[in-house]
């Protein structure tokens, strides 16, 4: 049986890791919904949800239960298969991005070195881009299959917005990749951890600024939440959805937010690097655990920024959104790329 001759323990390891990462992301997304309402409460000087459980901590479960119990409606004139496929695609794409993220360094358990990364492919960042561009289909298919003009318009808006900002995002990353010389997220994080190296934010502040703005747009978050502009489009591309299918759409947005926060932490803020601590001096297991915590804390800060912006800045108009993307961010990213390339060449010559 040559087919079955591979490292089964490795497979088991990876399987456990995948389960942990997926349920971890879902759990964090679950509590992001709660945090969002709490942050909104604080920013608007009111308590926020505080009835279910201590400090309202059971609120996400109450919300989830409510969504599940609602009646499931599939519109008569929709194409049913695609109508169901839409939310599935949105959720799958959101969760698949987590595969290439290095959650921590190695853990030493049962005599094996277990890497806390599901797959260290040498095209890590491109993989994330590929999956993100698949996420657009969730929105488009759902909006089209609903057979509703508002949904269709919202879906087209969402897709064109995602495509426009993907471009600026990619260009801002090229400058970063010229510095790192690698597409693997693990290598990028390890470079930032090496002694004598700063986090990439020091070398690429403009790139980071462009990246975070594009991340807001990719996640459909305010001020770029035009696909969900309720005063123009009633509710957005998920207007015809009810029950858990609606829940999947809303939930995938929070998963996306979490994953893009982690990606930003990995690319620009050292990933699982603990600032001012030499990890090599600690025992590997302690270092790995603290590293995972550091990465999570960094991403929670980004998630907070996402929410802070949402409850502070009003929504753009659609033409303003497109102008910002194409006429400001793309040229800025190109200039950033040229300057970075020139500096690298100059330093190589010196």
């Amino acid at each position: 049986m040559t087919i079955l001759a591979f490292d089964w323990i490795l497979l088991l390891e990876k399987f456990i890791l995948i389960v942990v990462v997926i349920f971890g992301s879902l759990g964090i997304a679950l509590y992001s919904t709660f945090a969002e309402r709490k942050v909104a409460g604080i920013l608007q000087d009111r308590p926020g949800p505080n009835r279910a459980g201590p400090f309202g901590l059971f609120q996400p479960f109450a919300d989830g239960l409510k969504l599940i119990m609602k009646e499931e409606i599939i519109p008569t004139n929709s194409s049913k298969f695609l109508f169901v496929l839409g939310p599935i695609l949105a959720m799958t794409a959101a969760l698949m991005t987590s595969a290439v993220i290095p959650w921590g360094s190695k853990v030493h358990l049962f005599g094996r070195d277990i890497s806390l990364q599901i797959a260290d492919v040498n095209i890590g960042i491109l993989y994330i881009f590929g999956v993100v561009s698949m996420g657009v289909y969730g929105i488009m298919i759902g909006g089209w299959a609903s057979n509703n003009k508002f949904s269709l318009m919202a879906a087209l808006r969402g897709a064109s917005q995602a495509i426009s900002y993907e471009l600026a995002m990619g260009l801002s990353l090229i400058a970063l990749l010229m510095l790192t010389g690698s597409l693997s997220l693990k290598t990028i994080v390890e470079q930032q951890m090496a002694p004598g190296h700063w986090w990439n934010i020091v070398y690429q502040p403009v790139g980071f600024l462009i990246f975070i703005i594009c991340a807001f747009a990719e996640c459909n978050r305010t001020p770029f939440d035009l696909p969900e502009a309720e005063n123009e489009l009633n509710f957005g591309y998920h207007q015809e959805y009810s029950s858990m299918k609606l829940g999947f759409y809303l939930f995938s947005e929070y998963v996306n937010m979490f994953i893009s926060s982690v990606v930003m932490a990995c690319l620009f803020f050292g990933g699982y690097d603990i600032p001012f601590v030499n990890e090599a001096a600690l025992s590997p297991n302690t270092a790995a655990t603290l590293g995972v915590l550091a990465l999570l804390i960094k991403s929670f800060i980004f998630i907070f920024i996402f929410m802070w912006v949402r409850w502070t800045i009003p929504r753009f108009r659609y033409d303003q959104l497109m102008n910002l993307g194409w006429k400001t961010l793309v040229p800025l990213a190109l200039i950033n790329m040229l300057v970075t390339g020139a500096v690298i060449l100059w330093r190589m010559g010196a």
């Binding site: 881009f129 561009s133 897709a159």
Partner: peptide
């Protein structure tokens, strides 16, 4: 991955 990003991700959209 470029096949996916360019063809499946952009052109098909």
């Amino acid at each position: 991955i470029v096949n996916l990003i360019v063809y499946a991700g952009a052109i098909m959209v």
